[in-house]
Design a protein around this nucleic acid. Sequence first.
DNA 1: GAGTGGTCTAGACCACACG
DNA 2: GTGTGGTCTAGACCACTCA
Lengths: 238, 238
Amino acid sequence: MDDPTASLAPYARVKRHLKAELADGRYPPGALMPSEAELVQQFGVSRMTVNRALRELAAEGMVERLQGVGTFAAQLHKVSTTLTIRDLHEEIEARGHHHEARVLLLRAERAPAPLAARLGLKAGAEVFHSLILHLENSQPLQLEDRYVNPAAAPDYLAQDFSRVTPTHYLLDVAPLWEAQFAIEAAPASAEEAQHLAIAEGEACLVMVRRTVGQKAPITIARLVHPDSRYQIDWAIKP
Amino acid sequence: MDDPTASLAPYARVKRHLKAELADGRYPPGALMPSEAELVQQFGVSRMTVNRALRELAAEGMVERLQGVGTFAAQLHKVSTTLTIRDLHEEIEARGHHHEARVLLLRAERAPAPLAARLGLKAGAEVFHSLILHLENSQPLQLEDRYVNPAAAPDYLAQDFSRVTPTHYLLDVAPLWEAQFAIEAAPASAEEAQHLAIAEGEACLVMVRRTVGQKAPITIARLVHPDSRYQIDWAIKP
DNA sequence: GAGTGGTCTAGACCACACG
DNA sequence: GTGTGGTCTAGACCACTCA
């Protein structure tokens, strides 16, 4: 049969059924799937119901739909995920460890042209700059070098970032609308090595994160992690 | 007014309107949003239509809905994205560059216990192992060390991977169902350094990718990129 | 009980693709 | 023209929450 967990909503049953068939290879990538009308018959539900099931499968990237043509099993080269911008503090506490933040620098500066451009400001405009070392159980874990658009967080310089992380504070005061990430490996500079208590040139995982609000960029952060003390993981399911 | 691109579907208009209000800060995170009944009145559409708009906003993580309570503006700490498992060949060609793959190793081996476990096999079972160097315009870009579950791709060893990449081949023969990634920075080992034409110990970006089919794991790949020749980028929008 | 979201229905009109 | 998906409607029943 086909109904282990009964009492599931009809649209969900249709969806589950099709997902299972896709998983089984019953419909290999590119194959034509049953039309809405056929599913209406097969499941004895209304067309709106099967439509919702198929629409959600399409949104999840499991099938592709072409008006006037039909519904096709997708090439599953895409998998969707929800990426969370996590606060490092929460992340560390979640592991049951102790988090400490040392504010190495916190001031206003004049932005050189390239930085200003990425923050949507004019060259030489004032930006807030913070440099914070995060430690997990007293071991350096991340060096956070961050520039903030003053328009997005006017009170940035007045915060005590040994108590609340910039990430947490900024998520509060400046709703995030869009984000970009870049990840690369880089050798530690002399200054980075000193703060992180590693050797100069040692491999580091560097994440550059830029977040944008509705009207203007909010912040650009360069997060440097010593090799092997940090790893980005994520899992993806259909 | 509120209708730049007229002739938009009603559910999409409702959605766009709410998105714009969320973006404006009209509903700060946690704020109660209008009920379906109110939106029905306001837009003069049926409840199913506003329901769809709200349901999709919820799916996108823009709002949270609680039955019996209401709809609330979400904390935008989560941003969703679709991650694509791209074939390196396509990626390089898309840049207008030339891709070359050198097959350094391609054979069956006995899997040690830890590897076997991750591939869903018994210790000592046969696995396929390939080691391939990818070059972009004759410069080493990625060293791909890959283990494959023979059940998922029985003909793996018979392929010519200088012509078709393992990624491409496996996406064809074994529909991917789930994936896990880990990214870390690591110094190049002596062997890796030699193949990649870099110095031993140089910082490398290492991605370990495990893909799983419906019934069993398909493959585990360790992709090593020399520092500064590779960067992972992605952008996220609400 | 009143208000909320979750869902289903039966029918309808439309745009599109294909022969 | 026939079949496909895209969408909307008006009304309905239900489960849930809160007062």
